[in-house]
Amino acid sequence: MSPVFFGLGILLLVMQTTVFHLLPSWLGRPDLLFLLVIFIVLYFETGPGLILTLLLGMLVDIFSGIHLGVHALAYFLLFVIIRIMARNLAIHDSVHQVPLVVISFLATTSFIHLLVSLLAPENPVLWDWPLLLQNVIILGIICLPFFHLCRRLMNRLQQRPRILLSSLRPRPRNRFRV
């Protein structure tokens, strides 16, 4: 299941860095990869989820900004914080997912802004409220249908019979057969 979602993450990254720039400006540039990260945090098991989150963060670092490791660290902290929150809050309910996405996006972008400002204090990055709010609103609107599609994909992958490498290997003959 993880490789499929990793592939989906790459596809979303490619789309965000190429096709989304052709969209009209009022549609903004929705950060679908961030929604995928939130989905992974919410619905994946800890091990594969954490690895996938770090890998996606590393990929985003290649194509965004000049400081490496910033997105990977931000996504890692997001993973840990949401997992801790999930113990006490019913964030798997769809009612709570919109505020979760909105707050997570604001927190993550703020953290990245802060980290970048600390790494290069001589080059202050301009805080752009209108652009940020536009992105927050768009993510808030599309997060539920996006999660729904991802859940459907996840269910389909879980129902699919798994092909294990061990099953493809030639088996030794049954020694107990007479």
Binding site: V14, T17, T18, V60, F63, D128
Partner: peptide
């Protein structure tokens, strides 16, 4: 062939 998708860079 590609552009930065983030808000700050």
């Amino acid at each position: 062939i590609g552009r930065d998708s983030s808000l700050w860079f």
